[in-house]
């Protein structure tokens, strides 16, 4: 599903990743851990092809960079659900419209969209809040909305970049449980975190990053 071969990338100001080799299988749940600045976000950005490697090859769901055409990237991203620490919800529309946007993008029928959005909101425990705007929700609720937007299109892979970074410990625990439930349905999950306590002992693969490289996988 995800394969990185000798991938290196550096930003203009320096830092980045060097010589990364990584495989993530279908349906796998893996934690990506490491201190701030270790390269977790850069690795995720390379996987959803927001960045292209300087050398080596990133292969995700059959798409290979750096040869991927720019107009193919949206079609790759439609098969990936993304969850961010800062939620990336749109403040100018309610929860329903935020989640529905992901389905409009893939061209789903309007008739199906209502049912699918309501189901996704129900799955993440936000039933009854579909008319609320992001600013009216707690951090945990916003993050669950973000997960609903990621899962509503039934992706093959969910990439979560520090999804528990802005929520309290109870909400963080619930979010991880939610991602595990999604994973149980067959969706692969790659979650970046620097919260060792949260992921310890959950029985999932741990990929440890340090200074732009993979220390342990």
């Amino acid at each position: 599903m995800i394969r990185l071969n000798n991938v290196s990338f550096s930003y203009e100001k320096g830092f980045g990743l060097s010589n990364i080799n990584l495989d993530v299988s279908e349906g796998e749940f893996a934690f990506l851990i490491g201190p701030t600045g270790s390269g977790k976000t850069t690795l995720l950005r390379l996987i959803y092809m927001d960045l292209l490697p300087d050398s080596g090859q990133v292969e995700v769901l059959g798409h290979k960079s750096p040869k991927i055409k720019k107009n193919s990237i949206p079609f790759l991203r439609r098969r990936i659900g993304m969850v961010f620490q800062d939620y990336q919800l749109l403040d100018d529309r309610n929860l329903f419209d935020n989640v529905a946007l992901a389905l409009h993008v893939i061209g789903d029928d309007t008739a199906d969209i209502y049912d699918r959005v309501m189901e996704a909101l129900n799955d993440v425990g936000l039933s009854g809040k579909e008319q609320h705007y992001p600013s009216e929700l707690s951090g945990g609720e916003q993050q669950r909305a973000c997960i609903a937007r990621a899962m509503v299109k039934e992706p093959e892979l969910i990439l979560a970049d520090e999804p528990t970074g802005n929520v309290d410990p109870v909400a963080a625990y619930e979010l991880v449980k939610l991602l595990e439930e999604i994973n149980n349905e067959g969706t692969a999950v790659l979650m970046a975190s620097h919260n060792y306590g949260l992921i310890k002992g959950r029985g999932h693969r741990i990929i440890e990053m340090q200074e732009g490289g993979i220390r342990r996988s």
Partner: peptide, 9 residues
């Protein structure tokens, strides 16, 4: 946000 959820140009 649109780019990240797979919207075309």
């Amino acid at each position: 946000a649109l780019e990240l959820i797979g919207a075309t140009k």
